[in-house]
Amino acid sequence: MKIVKKIITKEDGRELTYYHFLDSASESQQRAFESVDATEIALNSREVSSANTRTIHTLGDANV
């Protein structure tokens, strides 16, 4: 299972994490995940934080 996540800070300072599953996401979900960007989401520039994207798990051997 291959998972990527993006962490953003909402306008009010709360953290939101998007989980994206590479092997099962629909096209709509794929596009939505790609569209997630802290600059676009945080309307108040004082609360913009860099979008933190990292792979959290890759399952190459179990073929699930």
Binding site: K10, D12, R14, E15, L16, T17, Y18, Y19, H20, F21, S24, A25, S26, S28, Q29, R31, A32, F33, S35, V36, I41
Partner: peptide
């Protein structure tokens, strides 16, 4: 809404 995207798979966010 709480989720600023037009679709999602799983999202986790701090309770309002």
């Amino acid at each position: 809404t709480e989720i600023p995207a037009n679709d999602y798979e799983i999202v986790v966010f701090e309770n309002k």
